[in-house]
Design a protein around this nucleic acid. Structure first.
Length: 880
RNA sequence: GGGAGCAUAGCUCAGUUGGUUUAGAGCAUCUGCCUUACAAGCAGAGGGUCGGGGGUUCGACUCCCUCUGCUCCCACCA
């Protein structure tokens, strides 16, 4: 078979992915093997693949494929997340573009549109993952709103409600006026924002609601909320405002009389020391209001517009109202001054709208007990975070967690299974029928018509926190007492979770809580936290910057294997990835290297009569030993999740050790055949190398493995065993390295003297060179090796460790230059010797340092001495 | 405002209980090669007072303090 000189991934990738699917190699069923389980961090169902997904899923796939080849029963469960607020937003926008307003639709009509949208766009990302080579068990694909997964969510709600962990209450929540829903604290992003600090005059009332000429100044960033002011608050210790106590002031523009109150919350050194208290629109103010029994006046509606309670500017958006009211205040003589002011403002993570703190009735889940256990899971090491610097962050969050607001004023999601009765009571049950039964216990006359289900749905994370359980067993979530089904019993807990640190709390921590609660065991053993993919300038990749390449374009251009390797090259755990297309080029180049090595080896013809050359025998012995050593190193890297180290070890093993040294050492002369012993060994090594590379580059390795010899239908490299490390001879490996250094030394001399590699040279050795590896030096350096005797001053000299090597070259030696070079070397070693002797003559060093360390220093000393001696000898010879 | 982390070659990073020569890798750079697998390549080479200062130690890239510069997380001073 004739292979082209350049590898074309387009010809192989789809073919082999289809083959893997056809043969169901990704599919897993429980059996007697040890399981290796991973659940995918479910991407948004309508999302499309971005570089972050590529990084994450490549890492995941590498781990899964490695485990599979280590003989484990690997199961990688894929799926998608319904992402309630994000998806609902997209549907609302799509409908808006068609002139349909959400308000005009019923819940059922809207959900019909949403499901249509999901059917149309859902799962695109999963097909994109196939292009990347992800070896997910697609038969197990799940969606967080699959009917049975939704049932699990509802059961979970009922379970926690009955346990007393879920309660409903009026609280100050983070209101998203664009998404029209409350969001959790974690969904609020604080960004420093430049705004204005308005200094407003509030005139003192004369007692009858008329202004006097005295006033105080209040500093605020939100003048549009003054109509909702319930009081002005000062610090009781503030002497400046002693005179104010007991007075009343008038709200500008509407002349409403409000009291002066005192509360030590107010900072005397901030602003003017006078705080306007607006309980409905600020969390702190709300708390002050509670302490002082102030009325709560809510003047902002769901959309962030002023309502009729504001009396003025009714119907205006809060930001328009702010501009307008400033003008009005100025005209009325209430604006003292305004200054620029930068302060952190909360934005909705999903819609980027400025969060409006707002009082509303919401459902909450108590977190204190759950958080305590989840913290313990990480502190005890039951769950390992990689890198472990995240333990600190995790602890901090778990110790300061607040109750989780789980209700969302949306339609896309699992509807809260709470039913309101005409008498105001609430019943919570998994179904409407069960709810009615409960209701009838309260009043037998109630009928289904009397029950009104809560309009809200649950936070998306309230379903995804069940993911490692519910993808296997949808009944167990919400029913801790139930026996797990066979799948869950076998696959849980999962082994590794690969995800971004940005959802450590949203998702990872909550999965640990759910796991502890329902399974009495953690959901995974290791959490590998990736970095964020940035461009090479360090900027986060984003659509607006346009600095995010489309992974599918990259795959089309370079091949999935190249993209995978390119992403992994620079991905140490927890560190951000500075993505640069040159890394993917490097991946492509490596593909090509592997391809061409294969062309070379399979192009050889075996000469059955040929005896094995000595150099080949040495090379085979060396590579056998080296292979075991490298497999050992690679396994160690994998065990410690040092994936990029594992990759680089394999990369260098293939490129440097195998191609540059081994293949060159065993390569037959042009046109000649290769002996069978060497050929078989080489094919064996290639086979092992392909297996080692396979988890990283699955496509090209399958292609070559299939081409290497006749394969039966249904055979695959995917399920072959990873090479095993055997005992190896480290001394022999070291000896071979000396041979390589000798070859490099000769090549260096050829280069500096302009000598062709074809011209055979003499190499004279002085010292303890391991002669068993000499045949390799002979072949690769094209030299005849002999022992150095007599005057070597007419030879070019170099050293391999402590062995002196000479390449005689009468007439080509530049004596001046050689002397200079030797003198530089001599100076170096003399200085080095001095520093070593400095140490050795220090009694405290000799007394305190471990014996081995001292021995090393003595070895350094003797090595340096012997080098100085040989350099001096050469110098003397030259100077004669 | 509170907390955490980082700073090592031009770039991206290793450096695994403080001791294997006077610090490593990949990429990039320079030099010479179209050598019959591969120019997406081959052979060689250069390049770092380990952010600054101080301390502990026989010994510090590694531990402690401090300064500087970045990054991230958390956070209700209007």
């Amino acid at each position: 078979m004739e292979l082209p000189a350049k590898y074309d991934p387009a010809l192989t990738e789809d073919k082999w992915y289809a083959y893997w699917l056809e043969n169901k190699f990704f599919h897993s069923e429980p059996d007697e093997r040890e399981p290796y389980t991973v659940v995918i961090p479910p991407p948004n169902v309508t999302g499309i693949l971005h570089m972050g997904h590529v990084l994450n899923n490549t890492l995941n796939d590498v781990l899964v494929r490695k485990a599979r080849m280590d003989g484990k029963n690997a199961c990688w469960v894929p799926g998608t997340d319904h992402a309630s607020i994000a998806t609902e937003n997209k549907v609302v926008q799509k409908l808006a573009a068609e002139g349909i307003k959400k308000e005009d639709l019923t819940r059922e009509e809207f959900l019909k549109h949403a499901w249509e949208w999901k059917e149309k766009h859902g799962g695109i990302i999963l097909s994109q993952l196939r292009k990347l080579g992800a070896s997910c068990d697609w038969d197990r694909t799940k969606f967080t709103m699959d009917p049975d997964l939704s049932d699990a969510v509802i059961s979970t709600f009922v379970y926690f409600y009955n346990k007393g962990y879920i309660y409903r209450g009026v609280r100050m929540v983070n209101w998203d006026p664009v998404g029209l829903t409350a969001v959790s604290d974690e969904e609020v992003v604080h960004k420093d924002t430049v705004s204005k600090f308005y200094h407003l005059r509030y005139f003192i009332s004369d007692g009858n609601g008329n202004p006097t000429d005295k006033y105080i100044i209040i500093a605020t960033t939100r003048p549009e909320t003054i109509m909702a002011d319930a009081a002005i608050c000062i610090n009781p210790a503030d002497e400046r405002y002693e005179w104010l106590k007991g007075q009343k002031v008038l709200i500008p523009l509407i002349n409403k009389e409000i009291p002066i109150i005192e509360d030590s919350y107010v900072a005397m050194d901030f602003g003017t020391g006078c705080l306007k208290v607006t309980p409905a629109h600020d969390v702190n103010d709300y708390e002050i209001g509670m302490r002082h029994n102030l009325p709560v006046l809510d003047i902002i509606d769901d959309h962030g517009r002023l309502n009729e309670k504001a009396q003025i500017l009714v119907g205006e958006d809060r930001f328009d109202a702010r501009k307008k009211i400033v003008g009005m205040l100025q005209e009325a003589g209430n604006l003292e001054k305004m200054e620029n002011y930068t302060s952190p403002i909360g934005y909705s993570e999903r819609t980027n709208a400025v969060i409006e703190p707002r009082l509303s009735m919401q459902w909450f889940l108590k977190m204190d007990e759950l958080a305590k256990d989840a913290l313990e899971s990480v502190e005890s090491g039951a769950v390992k975070l990689i890198p472990d610097k995240y333990r600190n962050t995790y602890r901090h969050w778990m110790e300061n967690v607040r109750d989780w607001c789980i209700s969302r004023q949306l339609w896309w999601g699992q509807r809260i299974p709470a039913y309101y009765l005409p008498d105001g009571q609430v019943v919570v049950a998994e179904t409407a029928e069960a709810a009615l039964e409960q209701a009838q216990k309260i009043n037998a006359a109630y009928t289904a018509e009397d029950l009104r289900q809560d309009e809200d749905v649950l936070d998306t994370w309230f379903s995804s926190w069940l993911w490692p359980i519910s993808v296997f067993d949808t009944y167990k979530a919400g029913h801790p007492e139930a026996e797990p089904n066979a799948d869950l019993a076998y696959y849980y807990p999962t082994n590794d979770l690969v995800t971004g640190p940005d959802i450590l709390f949203f998702w990872v921590a909550r999965m640990i809580m759910a796991g502890n609660e329902f399974m009495n065991d953690v959901p995974f053993r290791n959490v590998y936290l990736t970095g964020i993919v940035r461009d090479k300038l360090g900027r986060k990749m984003s659509k607006t910057l346009g600095n995010s390449p489309d992974p599918l374009d990259l795959i089309a251009k370079y091949g999935a294997d190249a993209v995978r390797l390119g992403m992994l090259l620079c991905s140490s755990a927890g560190n951000d990835i500075l993505y640069d297309e040159s890394q993917i080029e490097q991946g492509r180049n490596f593909n090509n290297k592997v391809w061409n090595a294969f062309r070379l080896v399979t192009g050889w013809t075996v000469d059955a009569a040929a005896a094995q050359p000595e150099a080949s025998a040495v090379a085979v012995k060396w590579f056998e030993n080296k292979l075991s050593q490298v497999v050992e190193t690679v396994n160690d890297h994998f065990a410690k999740f040092r994936i990029s180290d594992a990759l680089m070890t394999i990369y260098k093993f293939f490129w440097d050790d195998f191609c540059a040294w081994y293949l060159e050492a065993v390569k037959p002369a042009y046109g000649a055949g290769i002996d069978k012993v060497t050929y078989d060994a080489t094919i064996g090594f290639f086979d092992a190398l392909l297996k080692m590379i396979h988890p990283i580059m699955p496509f090209i390795t399958e292609e070559l493995w299939q081409n290497m010899s006749e394969r039966q239908p249904g055979e695959t490299i995917m399920t072959q065993r990873y090479p095993q490390a055997k005992a190896y001879d480290a001394d022999f490996i070291a000896a071979f390295e000396m041979a390589c250094e000798a070859v490099a030394g000769v090549r260096n001399i050829r280069q500096s003297k302009g000598l062709s590699p074809r011209e055979a040279l003499e190499l004279k050795v002085k010292g303890a060179f391991p002669m068993e590896v000499a045949p390799v030096v002979t072949k690769l350096a094209n030299v005849n090796i002999g022992v150095a005797e007599g005057d070597m001053s007419a030879a070019q000299r170099f050293m391999v460790r402590t062995v002196e090597m000479f390449v005689p070259m009468e007439g080509l030696i530049n004596v001046e230059e050689e002397i200079k070079k030797l003198e530089t070397d001599l100076a170096y070693y003399q200085k080095f010797l001095a520093s070593v002797r400095g140490k050795l003559s220090n009694e405290r060093f000799v007394a305190n340092a471990p014996e081995a360390v001292v021995a090393v220093e003595r070895k350094k000393e003797s090595d340096a001495l012997s080098k100085i001696e040989s350099i001096t000898a050469s110098l003397n010879a030259l100077k004669k």
